[in-house]
Write a protein that binds this DNA or RNA. Structure first.
Lengths: 350, 350
DNA sequence: TTGAAAGCGTTACCAG
DNA sequence: CTGGTAACGCTTTCAA
């Protein structure tokens, strides 16, 4: 627990002044400090295991090379934090570090957390959410370069760049996959009204049907929630006691948990997946979609890419390297990725 | 993006000196500063929306009221981060803030992350892991008060306090629950050899059988991995084509995903849960155990409590309020909690 | 080529 | 009761 070495300690050990230490260690020694002194300084720094005090640095430079990430519940929720992982990848590769604060879904804590981060001189701010959603941008975020990941400004005149998945296309391509397999009666368990993602995925599903000229039965879309039991109940409603001719041949789910519920229901009803029924997930949740039996065909949310894109935009703004002119754009849409596994197959012949 | 107000700005506006501002705003105005000046100062601070610069404060005080949390993969993994949530609860209630860094399972990044945190004057450090495991404590952690949550020092002479779940008791009580329901043939899908938690849970399972005087078949324990498909395969091996008399009447799983796989297998085999087979999970994973059909009886990991206990220990050490003498203890064990839902029931009569 | 000094925003000490 | 000054650790400018 003893004190860390300071630049002064290094200077003393090397027998030079503090300024020399600073110059050398910051690569501006040549032409300012004698070669020999440089070596002594470097040796001393190494010996004392010296690294500059970041606090003093921040105070002096008025910047910290720290990016603050405010999460609604990415940390505490059971959903993976790959947005943060992707953001961190980029930040580290560009010499920044990220620190995360999580408000556990209590947006009343947003402003305070932002202030805390700002008081610590973060050079930029990122707001990240588990699911796509509109947020009230905390005032403080306008004081430094900021970006929104997986969420967007609820105001009509958004002031911050946001990076989100292209849910409509995702929904469309998911449905297209099923359509291409010959399914003509595809039910949709669509999640929940109050998630902005749900209606977008529904839209994509409708678009795919329209484009393929396949008529859409209005009673095939259920706003069913997001959990296993909701998928189970939805599937039971669709399948239990229904004659094969009346059954949908595929069920497209707005997330993977719903698909687990559907698969479970099918098993209880003696229906094989994908023989009798194709089941499609969404999100590609780690350790769910890939390990289900059968493994789930799903539409992967590009979480890592969202994080990377958002951080890239942010750092470009901070470092003024924004040559793409993207600074004027407000929205980046990242495509979802179809992952074909084993839970979907050709429509059964009737 | 304009500069924040400093104490000097406040002083000027109020027509006093910086020191007066500092005294008043830190509650030590009475007896030092004229009542009238105090009011002017407070008014000025409010008007300028002044809050002290945390960086300067840290530099000055040599402490930051920030706790650094280093996570192996709590943030990015699909496992919930309630340890961090619990830790944050306590920290905030005691006037600290937490910042999280995640190394994404790359322990080579540990030391660097710790240095980063240390350079930013964190007052304390917590290392937290997703699953129980031994770690190589990064040297830097010994320089400030530190604690381990859900992990422990791999060395024979541990130097840091750690807080972990009581897995043996958890395993025992899970098995006892099944035993009390009359099950005499309980199979165990035990996870994976290389997790320290697995053998502890197995030990508890054995202990329960010994205490209840129920003989244990050696071929009933499978080190099966941790995922849905592993549970599925394990259950198939145990149940498929096996006569009712030869079948285990309950399967205890080392986590909830395994239990999902088991339930799915049972469904495919036409076995009802819990009628024909009781299924027990472990962990109480949010949105899995509680939403399965049937909802999973499980042994809840006390993640939130672990986080709270670890942070309490840490802050007590930092603030010197450690009156419990716990500072001398190296280990805190937090009990798991049996959560009875619908997947377990009385053993079928034969 | 080197060292001294100023300043980043704060608080604590000590004269006045 | 008040206000000036030093110090926290660093970088940068300027003078020697």
């Amino acid at each position: 627990m003893n004190r860390k070495a300071t630049a002064l300690d290094v200077a003393k050990l090397a027998g030079v002044s503090r300024s020399a230490v600073s110059l050398v260690l910051n690569g501006r020694g040549d032409g300012n400090v004698a070669k020999e002194s440089q070596d002594r300084i470097r040796a001393a720094a190494l010996e004392l295991n010296y690294s500059p005090n970041a606090i003093a640095l921040s105070l002096r430079n008025q910047r910290s090379r720290v990016i603050g990430i405010l999460s609604d519940e990415v940390v505490v929720s059971p959903f993976d934090g790959n947005i943060i992982g992707g953001a961190d990848d980029i930040a580290r590769s560009r010499g920044f570090v990220t620190v995360v604060m999580d408000t556990e879904r209590d947006s009343a804590r947003d402003a305070g957390a932002i202030e805390t981060l700002l008081d610590r001189q973060v050079d930029g701010l990122m707001y990240v959410t588990v699911g796509l959603k509109p947020i009230d941008v905390p005032q403080g975020m306008l004081r430094v370069p900021s970006v929104l990941a997986n969420c967007y400004d609820a105001l009509p005149q958004p002031q911050l760049h946001h990076v989100i998945p292209d849910e409509v296309t995702g929904g469309r391509e998911a449905a297209e996959h099923l359509l291409q397999l010959g399914h003509l009666d595809i039910a949709l368990l669509a999640g929940d009204e109050d998630s902005p993602a749900a209606p977008l995925r529904v839209q994509g599903y409708r678009d795919a049907h329209a484009a393929a000229n396949v008529p859409l039965r209005g009673d095939r879309i259920f706003m069913a929630g997001w959990d296993i039991d909701a998928g189970y109940r939805g599937a039971m409603k669709l399948l239990d006691g229904v004659s094969p001719a009346e059954r949908p041949t595929a069920i497209m789910c707005a997330n993977d948990r719903l698909a687990v519920g559907v698969t479970l229901a099918a098993a209880r009803l003696g229906l094989s997946v994908p023989g009798d029924l194709s089941v499609m997930g969404y999100d590609d949740e780690t350790r769910i979609a890939d390990t289900m039996v059968p493994a789930l065909t799903t539409m992967a949310l590009p979480l890592r890419e969202i994080g990377r894109a958002a951080m890239t935009t942010l750092l470009d703004a901070i470092e003024g390297t924004d040559t793409t002119g993207k600074g004027t754009t407000v929205e980046t849409m990242v495509p979802c990725r179809l992952v074909i596994r084993e839970s979907t197959g050709p429509a059964p012949t009737r």
